[in-house]
Design a protein around this nucleic acid. Structure first.
Lengths: 340, 340
DNA sequence: AACGGTACCGGCAACGTTACCGGTTTTCCC
DNA sequence: GGGAAAACCGGTAACGTTGCCGGTACCGTT
């Protein structure tokens, strides 16, 4: 285990002081070109690499960003790739932690990353999270933080997310326009803002088109396919069953699709279905499923850019909020009226 | 920006030396119980957290593992979750870097992680990677390293992977037993060991059952669905077209499926299809697609465990190699003969 | 010859922590 | 009561780096 060379080794071999070596390596000023050349030559020869730990200790920054995500499903892993892309470019290394949708795990991750002295946080909250004390700690220490995708009004921080209200509206209005009358929504956990917003969009669309809201058609369950399946089964077992379902995620849409098939109903004739996220799988199943697309990769990139900005203007007064537009992709599952 | 409290602050407030504080905090020995109590009380009050950077600098270890993966698709993100799980338990923080299947990016990631002075590496190589100098650098520095999933004989290191030969064999033998005569294989890039091994299993199965190898039925393409689609189209356009296709990934199986449907062929009657990975999507498409399952989450956990072992026995002579069994899931796409 | 300026360099302290050594006081035992 | 051991504590150096300050040598100017 030959220890890596340090600035001291170079100084010793060249019979000069460490200060001079240090200066030679970065700051051209105040150092004889000859000396500098000698130092750089030796740097090359010994393959000297500055010790980042020592630098971090001295400069009080680690050039590391802590990213906390609830999971690494299709959407989030795209977003993470976007974050990674931009961060790497800007000289940051990213530490990705998965909370696995667990509140406890999220707290642990936060603590670990704080201990690692990351320069900042990029966060998407877990579905279990209802209190935000662990994140407040970050803010108390005045460490930059940006939330993305799963944001929450309870956390005053710069945020990047899609227009969830708009997305919910797009999906619902589309179903209305296709002539569906009893449109149900499979929403997520009630504490998740992302779910509430999509629900809000759903309600907005109903209101705009003077459709009466039926609370029996609003169902909350968790994001998993299985839960969505059971929830959809219950919906379909109602006396006056819905003739369309809007699910706020594609995973749930798959669950709903399975329930619909099991019940023997035909899409889009008997019932319409629209999901959210536009995962590739939707064009592979039969019938293909309509969905609201969000620009995941782009969103990740924008988040990282915003973070880096926030990093450089530490004292921004009003937290920025960036909202990205969604786009509805209409497929077989909801298209009763063919476009002319 | 109130600076976090240090051991010095505590010492000053209690009028004792930093050495004593340091001892009080971890090593019970050589410190008066009274003093210790006072220190711990103040630790609590000030909410003191040891500075990991300083610790790392001193102890020459960062308790951080660098993980490099080519992407975060279904299989790899499961594996990463397994790694994360075990590492976190053992007190390590994980830095996940995606190479995006790019050789250059992989090198950059390696360098960055080396600079970050991670305690070790857990690596799955990109599909572009043909030379391994960048990883050799890790070994020269005698930093522990474990490779997983996408391993390569060119890299002498402890490794964890599935039995790729066995998996390829299972899939192919199954197709033979179902009565398919001209079985094609869609393999991956030629430099990927993982692909070559599955191909080897394919050849083994043919040999065992005295089926003649037809080189026209062995096609190499990259892992993407689109490429697989085109490759499958070409296969199906042959004069003597294959009556079964084994693809070494599910993404490719999807591509092949689309080509088969476009051609108007029926699975499993006209043609059989078996994929690899057993992604959930396979049971959602129609027909459902058979596939070779690998225990991804488990594999990740085992990898991390092996890494931690390697960490503690730095001078292991023979690199361990752990091989996990695969399991074939037979679905509609390949089941011509119904089980009795 | 005296002075000011510049080019170059080295020493010290500091970032936060701990290992090691040496010192003082107390306790214990014969 | 003397000596040894135990209990407790503080100072120093070190991990690798850089900012700051002060110092020397040389040059050109008056």
């Amino acid at each position: 285990m030959t220890k890596p060379p340090t600035i001291k080794d170079i100084a010793r071999q060249l019979n000069i002081s460490v200060s001079t070596v240090s200066r030679a390596i970065r700051n051209a000023s105040d150092v004889n070109p000859e000396t500098k050349k000698a130092v750089l030559a030796l740097v090359e020869e010994l393959n000297y690499q500055p010790n980042q730990l020592a630098l971090s200790l001295r400069n009080k920054q680690t050039h590391t960003i802590g990213v906390i995500v609830p999971n690494l499903d299709y959407v989030l892993s795209m977003m993470v790739r976007g974050i990674d892309e931009v961060a790497l470019e800007a000289g940051y290394t990213v530490m990705i932690c998965q909370s696995n949708e667990s509140f406890g795990r999220e707290i642990l991750n936060t603590r670990r990353l704080l201990e690692s002295l990351v320069d900042g946080f990029i966060i998407s909250v877990s579905s279990e999270t209802k209190t935000f004390e662990h994140f407040k700690k970050i803010q108390e220490k005045e460490i930059p933080m940006v939330v993305f995708d799963r944001v929450t009004p309870q956390l005053k921080a710069p945020s990047v997310h899609i227009d969830n209200v708009g997305g919910g509206f797009q999906a619902t209005e589309h179903l209305i326009e296709q002539g569906y009358k009893r449109i149900a929504i499979l929403a997520g956990p009630k504490n998740l803002d992302i779910s509430n917003k999509r629900l809000e969009g759903y309600l907005n669309a109903l209101k705009k088109h003077h459709v009466k809201v039926d609370n029996d058609l609003i169902v909350h369950c968790d994001f998993s396919q299985d839960y969505a399946f059971f929830a959809a089964e219950e919906l379909l077992a109602m006396k006056k069953r819905p003739d369309a379902i809007f699910t706020i995620s594609d995973r749930m849409a798959i669950g709903a699709m399975l329930a619909i098939k099991k019940k023997g109903l035909e899409m889009p004739h008997d019932i319409g279905l629209v999901g959210f996220n536009d995962e590739p799988i939707l064009s592979l199943v039969s019938p293909t499923i309509s969905s609201v697309e969000q620009p995941s990769f782009e969103l990740g990139k924008i988040t990282a850019k915003l973070f880096i900005e926030a990093m450089h203007n530490p004292e921004e007064t009003t937290p920025v909020e960036k909202i990205l537009k969604t786009k509805l992709y209409v497929r077989e599952s909801s298209q009763r009226i063919l476009p002319k």
